[in-house]
Structure formats: C-alpha cells, structure tokens
C-alpha cells in the first residue's frame, strides 16, 4: 500500500491495527530507575509498514515487546485491533497474541522438530482449527510466498532465507494482521535479506500491518514510515512519498 493509501485509511476512519497511546515504561526504581520509553504515541494502520530506528538503548526493543503484549507499560495503553491489552486477563491476552499478532525474529525461531507446514499450523491448531483445515491454510500461505515446495522440510533442511520466509508465513496465518519484526534480516546476507523485506512489503501492500525494529537504514527504507527513537522518546519520523516524483 502506498503512503497515500495508508493516509487515506487514517482519514477515512479506519482503525489502527496497533495503537500505542501515551506509553511509558520505567524499569527499576529510585536511583536505578530507567525510562525505557517516555510518552510514546504511535498508530500503525492496515497496509502500513513502519520501521523503528534509533541508537542502542533508545527503547526500540521495549517498544516491540509492549506492542506484542509481552510486557505492560508503566503508563499509557496498548491497543491491538481496538482491544486494550492492559485490561485483559492472562488467558485472553494469550489468545489475542496468538490470533492477532505474528512475530518474526532475527533467528527465525522455528521449532526444529516440526516441518515448515507444521510450524505454521501450530498456532492455528492451538486455536482449535482442525489439523486438516490448518494445513490447507498453511499450504496456501506458503504458496502465496512462493515456497510451497518447502512445506514438508524441517528447519535444518532449509537455508536462513527460506526459514525466514516460513516465519513470515507463520506470522501472517489465519486472521493475524499485525507482524512485529525484530531485526528480521540480521542473520541473512544482503540479497536474501532484501528479498525477505520485499516479501514483508508485499504482505503490507496486501493489507497487513508491520512494525520492524532495525538499525540498518537501507532495510528501514522499505517501510512507509520510519520513526526515530532517542532516550525513549519518539523524536522524528520520515514518510515516503509516492515514487516517481523524485527523479523527474
């Protein structure tokens, strides 16, 4: 989706998939108190790909952890598809995490004893979807990402780039519309990393929302918006225009 389309979503009243509202996270107390995030407001809309950059210790990972409901803010709210994560019990929170949010990590985090298709179907089966229906969904997802032939391979039988594609398929299975990615290309060579980013970009163009933490400007540049964090504050953001106006 182009930025103008994402902006259109915002103006047309489409709700954000992810909404951080005045989020502050303080670790420790007293003299050891560290403000990892200070009053951060951020919305990510369907079709939007947002990259988070900033120096080490700026709060990038904390932001991703809070967005994924793996940690709670000291102040402020985190909403995923309109549901405030703070008000949920443990069981319900686990359900939202499983149904709405997909994660992509630097080291892929596939379960070694399961095939690509089984890795993808696991969260769906935990959600009560039948094995057969889940497998059908997984095959469709692999097909869409152009890696249908990997369905029955184990992680150790795949290259890093192939494993990361499977991880993206897993992140977007079922009704999940939000992908949270932590340095997803960190372990890949430049060309493979780029194809993974192009894939993430394409999934966003097809309607998903993604937030990716990275320290590489060249990787962040695949996003519609790049936000900069410094000392726990969102200090700036850069928005891509529609291409074409740049070189003519």
């Amino acid at each position: 989706m182009t930025t103008s389309q994402a902006a259109f979503n915002a103006s047309a009243g489409t709700s954000p998939v992810l909404h951080l509202e005045g989020v502050t996270r303080v670790h420790g107390r007293g003299a050891a108190e560290v403000h990892a995030l200070r009053d951060v407001d951020l919305k990510v809309y369907p079709g939007e790909f947002v990259a988070v950059m900033g120096p080490s210790g700026a709060g990038k990972s904390t932001l991703l952890t809070l967005a994924g409901g793996l940690d709670s803010p000291t102040a402020g709210r985190v909403l995923v598809e309109g549901t405030a994560l703070g008000g949920l019990g443990r069981k319900k929170l686990a359900e939202v995490r499983r149904r709405s949010i997909g994660y992509v990590f630097q080291d892929y985090n596939l379960i070694p004893a399961l095939t690509a298709a089984e890795n993808i179907t696991l969260p769906r089966e935990l959600d009560g979807v039948s094995t057969r229906a889940a497998r059908r969904e997984a095959l469709a997802a692999l097909e869409e990402l152009g890696i249908a032939q990997l369905a029955d391979r184990f992680p150790e039988e795949m290259s890093g780039g192939q494993q990361q594609r499977v991880a993206i398929a897993r992140a977007l299975i079922g009704e999940r519309r939000l992908v949270l990615a932590d340095e997803p290309t960190g372990a890949l060579d430049s060309a493979t990393g780029e194809s993974v980013l192009a894939l993430l970009r394409a999934r966003c163009d097809a309607g998903a929302a993604a937030m990716m933490v990275t320290h590489e400007a060249r990787h962040a540049a695949w996003a519609d918006r790049v936000v900069f964090l410094r000392d726990g504050r969102l200090v700036d953001e850069s928005v891509s225009q529609d291409a074409g106006s740049l070189l003519v």
């Binding site: 962040a220 540049a221 891509s240």
Partner: peptide
C-alpha cells in the same frame, strides 16, 4: 537524517 532517510525510502520504492 530525516531528509536523507526519506530520499532512501523513495529510492527503495523506485527499486521495488
């Protein structure tokens, strides 16, 4: 940096 980042995003979009 903001300005250059935007240019980088635009170039990357053209590359896509």
């Amino acid at each position: 940096r903001k300005h250059s980042m935007k240019a980088l995003q635009d170039y990357t979009r053209l590359k896509g």
